[in-house]
Amino acid sequence: MDYRNTLTTCTYCGCGCNFFLESLDGKLTGTIPCKTSPVNEGKLCIKGWNVHQFVQSERRLKQPLLRKNGELTEVSWEEALAFTASKLKEIKEANGSDAIGFFASAKVTNEENYLMQKFARAAIGTNNVDHCARL
């Protein structure tokens, strides 16, 4: 029996409400707003209250996909990563660093945004990094 409440931050709007994701035996069962959070003081909007519902949706992507003969086909991580890295290398060599662009995201964590721009700048050698903050 594994019942947990994990304190986290909302993935939707910029209010940044804090809540607990409630789980029982590895399944998300609900969202409970954090009373002691100075941001939302135990309150949430409709999106926050239902945020646990999309996480374990049947429609989630569960496997890497690679386009083969025009179709996106399920492949192993090994194959997907090897393809991606070698293709990036190839393009960098043929067209230069600035032929590669990166869209980071307002939806992933700080650490992940940091890592993407680090990869773009240090590994690829381009400042072509942006995200849709403008949008």
Partner: peptide, 12 residues
């Protein structure tokens, strides 16, 4: 009390 906040919990 966890992570500096109060949370519902199941003690076993």
């Amino acid at each position: 009390t966890a992570n500096g906040h109060v949370a519902p919990c199941l003690f076993q």
